[in-house]
């Protein structure tokens, strides 16, 4: 469109538009910047409300304390394990299924599609699922956190649509060369599906990393809990208690302990969100495609 000259009113439109978008962006950014600033500011200033935007009284005490906190370290380790193993299980179940369903000539393809699609709209619900998990002996095991949600039908559809877009000739050539379907999939199809795999790793990985409710329901032992459960305790439960008591006590020691806790809170938000926030911009170029193809059902 660049070769079309804008009229002056269109120019004004462009300026107004950019200004609003920029403002919107600043609003979205603000809470994130605020948390970063608080995490490296003196807890004294933070709790007195002196930190509005930029950090002051720089300290990395909060980050140092994270590594001294046993629970956070346990949670972090567990979350990494659940995310890595869980995502591998996800990929193993999702990619081949999407590939098979992308083959129009597969007899019964639509029956299988319906089989998967029904579960998007109808489910047993929380309690029957819980009873099932218990009866399978998966209650309070790490396994359930790794395999829960192993097949996302939505993601299967994204895969199916992506694979359907691969030129037939490639696979034909490989089969003529004597490759089995397995080898064709692994050595021909997957290497040209890096964009898809990237998006899948991100979608599944993030949902493992961020999930807390399954662990809340299924996990009892502290040493099996993922990071998000410890975060919930630090960020929400203790926050509620602290806010309720801090107004009525002036105890110096208590106030000091509270401040340190506050400090930890901001840094733990950063440390827990950072892996994902660093990862996604690299995969951003695939989003538009990935989300779009997922939405077009057929």
């Amino acid at each position: 469109m660049s070769h079309i000259k804008d009229t002056s009113s269109d120019k004004i439109f462009g300026i107004v538009n950019s200004t609003i978008v920029t403002l919107l962006m600043l609003i979205v950014m603000y809470p994130l910047i605020y948390v970063v600033s608080c995490s490296i500011s003196s807890p004294d200033l933070v709790s007195r409300g002196q930190i509005i935007l930029f950090p002051r009284g720089l300290t990395i005490e909060g980050y140092r304390r994270i590594f001294m906190d046993e629970n956070i370290m346990i949670g972090y380790g567990n979350t990494i394990m659940y995310t890595v193993l869980g995502t591998l299980v996800n990929l193993f179940l999702t990619l081949p299924t999407g590939y098979a369903l992308s083959k129009k000539e597969l007899p019964g393809r639509n029956i299988f599609m319906v089989y998967f699609l029904i579960t998007m709209y109808f489910s047993g619900g929380m309690i029957p699922t819980f009873l099932l998990v218990k009866s399978l002996g998966l209650y309070n095991t790490r396994t359930i956190l790794i395999i829960s949600g192993a097949v996302s039908v939505y993601n299967v559809i994204i895969c199916r649509t992506f694979f359907a877009g691969i030129p037939k000739e490639l696979e034909e050539a490989s089969i003529i060369d004597g490759c089995s379907t397995y080898r064709t999939f692994i050595q021909v199809v997957l290497p040209i599906s890096k964009a898809l795999i990237g998006v899948m790793v991100l979608y599944y990985g993030v949902s493992h990393w961020n999930s807390y409710f399954n662990a809340l329901i299924y996990i009892m032992d502290n040493n099996k809990k993922p990071l998000q459960l410890f975060l919930r305790k630090i960020l929400i439960i203790e926050q509620m208690n602290a806010a309720m008591t801090s107004n009525i006590t002036d105890d110096d020691v208590y106030a000091e302990a509270l401040k340190l806790k506050e400090l930890l809170k901001y840094s733990v938000i950063i440390v827990s969100s950072l892996p994902v926030l660093i990862l996604y911009p690299f995969l951003q170029k695939y989003f538009d495609k990935g989300v779009l193809i997922g939405s077009i059902k057929g």
Binding site: I51, L235, M240, S246, K265, I269, S272, Y280
Partner: peptide
């Protein structure tokens, strides 16, 4: 702009609610 606007989507519910409770806290909230 897109990168910034997408960022909150990747923050966990726990962290998001944590940020909200903190920012709205009567004693320390901004």
């Amino acid at each position: 702009v897109q990168t910034v606007l997408y960022a909150p989507h990747f923050i966990s519910t726990v962290v998001m609610v944590g940020i909200v409770t903190t920012m709205l806290s009567p004693s320390i909230g901004v």
